[in-house]
Design a protein around this nucleic acid. Sequence first.
DNA 1: TCTGGGGTCCTAGGACCC
DNA 2: TCTGGGGTCCTAGGACCC
Length: 438
Amino acid sequence: MNSQEKIIAAKAIALVDVNNCYVSCERVFNPKLNGKPVVVLSNNDGCVVSRSAEAKALGIKMAGPWYQIKDLAKKHGVIALSSNYSIYGEMSNRFMSILGDFVTRAEQEIYSIDECFLDLTAYQQLFDITEYAQQMRQRVNQWIGLPVCIGIGATKTQAKLANHFAKTHPDLDGICNWLTMEDAVKNEWLLKTPVREVWGVGRQNTKSLEAIGIYSIADLIASNPMQIKKRFSIVMARTVMELQGIPCLELETAPPAKQQILYSRTFGQRMSDIDALNEIITVFASRAHLKLRQEKAVCTVITVFIMTNRMREQDPQLSKSHSITLSVDTDDLIQIAHAARIALAKIYKTGYDFQKAGIILTGLSAKGRQAQSLFDPEPTDLAKQEALMHALEKVNSRFGRKAVGIGVSAMQGQAWEMNQKARSPNYLTDWNELLRVH
DNA sequence: TCTGGGGTCCTAGGACCC
DNA sequence: TCTGGGGTCCTAGGACCC
């Protein structure tokens, strides 16, 4: 084969992602942040979820608890921002749609808020796909101001890896095409890159791999997938094969139906009282129920979990969950909230400071022609309920008693009309009145 | 005291991802 | 004092049945 000939791979998968996504979004709206160390914090300003290059250079770690780094950050003039997910979501939509212009619908998988896979296999015949990727990168930057890097490989895992190299080698100008790189360079990089950089290899697996002498990505590629499967799992075996260039993971171009709906929060303060937890779980149930409706699905299993703060090793620890399986599919709020309370009662114990709780709806299926429950809120009520819940979060994102109490009262106000048995003395029956309160 | 074997379903929990 | 949230997939082990 002549070296001028184009390299046509069996598959060419690209991974495009936004660099430091949340920080980059903030910078689009506030260019003064450019060139400065910036971090974006999670809910409750708990920990760092996005860092600018300047913040990374200061040694600020991803998911680091903010209270521990605050002093260091202040000293170096780090700008800390609370997260604004609706802005990030909107930017994400535009990002995905710009990339969508370069491929067909069946060639794009939206993988997360800031990443997507593109199948460029068919375009290899037509263009130099490295240049094609460069056009994507420039267009995203020109149109919406977000910086991106692109990795190209024979499989999704290879594309992820190439993307990592695109980020860590500035001379590549944001694009790393694994398919056209020289073997000597590839081998050198694989030898000196630790195995933990591989997609699917986390902390625990890194330890276990090192224990059997696998340190670099080159070591992992040289391993036998069947033996890896025995020692680890089918998942890790797939990772090895994908690194070797054998595709095991399909592009998922139509988002699969959700398998579970989860709503959970860490409390601002610790909580040990069953009544308070009951109120919180009821609010969580209604949030999860809203998502269930938006998904146009029904569920059969309601799971509730509560846990203490694992970080406080000096405190007694408890982490429990309980599932209730209903005999019929439901998307009825009252039924779900009721099951959630029963589940909570099963796992609750006195004498513990709980710090986090959640509800998970599983056994999901598409909603068919199901009879409407008498308890179903009308669509308008649903909208009102959503408005109320947003107001609630705004009023007290840390789940203070007062705000949660009102939220629960709202639900009980609805139930009241049906069963004449409100359990809260301060319930309100009028939605408009509720909304006025906030 | 002795105490099978295989299949299935469910629950709990671990590991990973962004 | 203060350590995110929302997902997926896999596995071990118990309950139950024949």
